[in-house]
Amino acid sequence: MTSDSHALPSTGDHGHHAHDAASHGTLSSYLIGFGLSVVLTAVPFWLVMTGTIADKQVTALIVLVLAAVQIVVHMVYFLHMNTRSENGWTMMALIFTVIMVVIALTGSLWVMHHLNVNMMPVHDMSQMP
């Protein structure tokens, strides 16, 4: 795809290529991505529905890791993310967004968890004088 647009003389001498951001996959890349995402969806559902692993925390951890892997699979095979499209600006925007998301999520959960923990002595109120 990219080599085609580079070869066109009419696109000019500058580094602007309208199609780079959405460089398409091939049939095999779509099918590989689909196969991977089916497995990565089926395994966590199976783990939670059957309760194969007795420890809930271990199950939760595996489910989270599989979700993270599946998000990467979707990004690569369906959204065609790479470091080259738009001279790396799509990747730059993605990295910035991921940093913002991590700050917002961990910050909120961390602060609110501690707030909850410190608000806990509700039950002890009755025993107070």
Binding site: T11, H16, H17, H19, D20, A21, A22, E86, T90
Partner: peptide, 8 residues
């Protein structure tokens, strides 16, 4: 070119 920056 028209639409060159649409994707980004």
């Amino acid at each position: 070119p028209e639409g060159a920056s649409t994707m980004l």
